[in-house]
Amino acid sequence: MRQIRFCPACGHIPIVKIEEELLQKHQGILIGTVGCSVPLCSDMEGVDAISSAHGRGLSVATSVKRVLGKDKMVLVHAGDGDGLTIGIGEFVHTCLRNEKIIYVLINNQQFGMTGHQMSALTPLEITTKTSYPRKEEYHGIPVHVGKLVRALNPKVKYYRTTSATKEGINNFRKYLEEAINNDGFSVIEVVSPCPTFWGNAKKAYEYSKDYFNSLEEEHICNCKGK
């Protein structure tokens, strides 16, 4: 990395370092999107990159993949606001087409860059600057990425991990290496702590671990966020 422009203790940091290593190794192409990771394209060293519009990373990746061929590794790095809020149309159609793209979805359950607003993945009963708190009757239920992918196309490979634990980070590397060899679309959801907006680093990491565990059962998080 030329420089790291995330907040201190951000859950993105270990993830982007692993991505950079594997992109360099496989001479892959990074498709950056809009969100906390917006400086990523210019900060990663030795990687071809395209910085795309908000929510449109998968569209850009689709054409890059089709022009450059099946063997080229194409990785889209997006957040939950980008990928599943504004970009859910792109996500749905890429799942249906099963394009050979790796999609790293950093899920911090909010719009981080714009300052802690509710996203489509913000759990119920969680307070953000635009939900006091999130209620089903006002804001609808949050997206469950795993269930959505399974419903859309069972052929799509879906992985879930967290950058809040060492084990989760190791799993991310394992999943990403596996995804490079997959034939179709691979979605890696990474539950990522946001120390800036979930209180402090300790609270954010605890909250992310609880949230990650709650995803196994159902998408209603009872953990104590900010």
């Binding site: 498709i31 395209i50 795309s52 519009a53 449109r56 569209s59 850009v60 990746a61 689709t62 054409s63 890059v64 089709r66 022009v67 450059l68």
Partner: peptide, 9 residues
């Protein structure tokens, strides 16, 4: 955005 990706190549 498909054109953006293709044009970039």
């Amino acid at each position: 955005n498909l054109l953006y990706g293709a044009g970039a190549t």
